[in-house]
Computed example of a mutant assay.
Amino acid sequence: MDFTWTPEEEAFRERLRSFLAQTLPEDWERFSQHGPASPALTEYAATFCGKLAEDNLLTPHWPTDIGGQGLDPWHQTILAEEMWIAGEPRGGQYMNVNWIGPTLIKYGSPQQQERYLPPIAEGRALWCQGFSEPGSGSDLASLRTKAERDGEDYVVNGQKIWTSYAGLADTCFLLARTSEDRKRGISIFLVPMDTPGITVRQIPSIIGEGDIHEVFFDDMRIPASARLGEEGQAWEIVAYSLRNERLGIPRYSLARAALDRAVMILKDQGEFGRDAVRIEAAEAAALCEAARLASYAIVSRRTAGEVIGQESSSARFATVMCERRVAEFVAEHLPEALADAHPYLKMHHQRAIVAGIAAGSAEIQLNIIASDVLELPREPRQ
């Protein structure tokens, strides 16, 4: 595989860097510590994404007939890398453009596309995903939230947990059970968050204000037209969505940028000469590079038109490992960063805390790798 950037791709990256340099406020590194789901960053992201849209940089990987430029997955990767290196100023809207929008383009009805795609493409929409539940976690097949058909409506009862952005989101990408079949009994609904019967409660956390929530559905009534795809089609749709999600979250790029920043500070302080420090930095850099190349292998296959399967979990777990290692390196050798001495490093540490949870926990990814990639037996051989 040749991962050399073309002149056109290099120019695209430079265009993004120039846009960021001209657009982000001077105090951005400190401001970004608010967290992606905080009211402050969410408000700023709406302005920032609006400017991205004006410069045709918000959805360039979307088809041209939907308002994009039809650019390939490599351009999507470059866009995501530069946004994450900057601390992801799109806030929760990175989810809209990377997988909510593409999923609606592929599976949405004309009415759903007309309603939901323009606000995303203009940078003025915020979504949340109603996946995890108490006792279910990343095991989506075990979810218990029910959507029961009642004439032209569905009545939904249940609970979701660890829902990012729910407190400020406009719409929820909701998974609910429409029959008892473990996988084929799950359907997807596009639910406005102001629908009667929804209650949102914030879960206090150390990763920033407003990041995670519980969401309760009590006799919530939604029209059948809110269903995305057919009844029982959720497993197929979610598999497509998550492949797009993982492609659009190159956390390794922020981890490597934070590591480089930490090494520069240690050199300025005369603390990088010790062998132990240099070895630990090299190990963290190697993990970042491994995660990058694992992700690039997935992008290369997708660009070639190949179907991406569960091997994306390997790239996902490699990214978790590099995020954790860089965070540990900073905590060990620059602990003052976590007390606000180095805002960029503190911002990365906050993002790294959830690296093993977001988009499917690290433990679930390991299970997928063991069973579906390595095809290891579930029970020990006698």
Rank of each mutant, 00 (worst) to 15 (best):
Ile186Cys: 00
Ser300Ala: 14
Leu190Gly: 11
Tyr107Gln: 01
Ala359Asn: 07
Arg30Gln: 13
Trp162Glu: 09
Ala352Pro: 05
Leu374Pro: 04
Phe317Arg: 04
Gln310Lys: 14
His75Phe: 15
Pro204Asn: 14
Phe48Asp: 11
Pro7Phe: 07
Trp99Ile: 05
Arg15Tyr: 10
Glu43Tyr: 00
Asp372His: 13
Gly273Pro: 06
Ala141Gln: 11
Gly158Val: 07
Ala358Phe: 14
Gly87Gln: 08
Ile206Val: 15
Leu104Val: 05
Ala234Val: 14
Asp181Lys: 15
Ala304Gly: 11
Val373Glu: 03
Thr47Ala: 13
Arg381Gly: 14
Arg184Tyr: 11
Ala176Cys: 06
Thr64Gln: 09
His213Thr: 09
Arg177Ile: 01
Tyr94Leu: 12
Arg316Ala: 13
Gly270Thr: 07
Ser361Met: 05
Ala281Gln: 02
Arg324Ser: 13
Pro39Met: 07
Ala45Phe: 00
Lys183Gly: 03
Glu375Ser: 10
Arg144Lys: 13
Ala294Phe: 01
Ile368Glu: 13
Gly87Pro: 05
Asp275Ile: 11
Ala262Cys: 06
Trp235Lys: 01
Gly210Leu: 02
Val320Lys: 01
Asn98His: 15
Tyr94Met: 11
Met347Arg: 02
Phe272Gly: 00
Gln129Val: 14
Arg302Tyr: 09
Pro119His: 00
Leu175Lys: 01
Phe12Leu: 10
Trp99Glu: 06
Ala37Leu: 00
Leu140Thr: 02
Glu379Thr: 11
Ala276Leu: 12
Ala226Glu: 12
Tyr240Arg: 04
Arg201Trp: 12
Arg274Tyr: 13
Asp268Leu: 13
Asp72Cys: 14
Gly270Ile: 10
Pro223Ile: 15
Pro134Asn: 02
Ala290Lys: 07
Glu280Pro: 03
Arg124Phe: 06
Leu293Ile: 07
Ser142Gln: 10
Ala169His: 00
Phe189Met: 09
